[in-house]
Design a protein around this nucleic acid. Sequence first.
DNA 1: TGCTATTGTTGTTGCGTATAACAATCCAGA
DNA 2: TCTGGATTGTTATACGCAACAACAATAGCA
Lengths: 136, 136
Amino acid sequence: MHDPLVKHPGYTLRRASGAMTAELTQRLADHGVRIVDATVLLWISENPQVTASALGRALDIQRANMVPLLKRLEDAGLIERAPIDGKSQGLSLSEEGRKRVPAIEATIEAFEQDLLARIPLQHREHFIPALDALWR
Amino acid sequence: MHDPLVKHPGYTLRRASGAMTAELTQRLADHGVRIVDATVLLWISENPQVTASALGRALDIQRANMVPLLKRLEDAGLIERAPIDGKSQGLSLSEEGRKRVPAIEATIEAFEQDLLARIPLQHREHFIPALDALWR
DNA sequence: TGCTATTGTTGTTGCGTATAACAATCCAGA
DNA sequence: TCTGGATTGTTATACGCAACAACAATAGCA
């Protein structure tokens, strides 16, 4: 059967992204978090007191969609909110969050290493620069 | 604000894929089709009488999810089904489908070219080989 | 012939994202 | 200082895509 989309960068990009996303989702399931949860936790860890809106802008997540996401993390006892002023609230890791984020981070780091290791050596250094040109 | 995921290939891959997917979705909207519709149409065009199951296997789409997809294309008058035997049916482009697929294909080709053009020259030839290693 | 695998299908669920709207609050310019 | 526009968090709703379980009908092989 003939594949009309072999050698098409956009198609290849979508397929590769889908495969890697599925794998990371699987690995993070052991920690009870989704990819987007882990991403947000890492951002909050690195930027304490960041605001929900600012976080949404950085990750390209609509403000409205941050609501259930943060609620989930708060219900899981991983993050805390503290009012900054009358309308903004700063996000930070809770005690429990600080305890569990390192393992999540380690899982992500291991995944990233494994991903990179699958790319033939001669192409490896070009991977991130090429992708960066498509969205940064 | 510090981004904890800069230089992470998996994260970069997801972001680049998302950006490109959004752009292609936009471009294909002019033709009234989604990305997955266009992909299926191209496959059927290159493989007349292909079966729904075989198509699903090639594109990693569950058999069950092919049903509404093909129904949409059939309702739009773009494809036709012809029984192969008692349980399989061959898919092919309809008259209308053959008329409209070339423009859709041209849109995709233009998109792929534009995508590639955004990647700095020294990284360009490494793009597809690197991605292929992640899913093929 | 009989058993297993395959095909198309239905129904349901979950996840991620998009849009519109709203009240409360802020901030900067007149 | 006042005020109008922008921002923040939130609700509700919808869409697109993928996953799973189950089923009847059929095909193909032992």
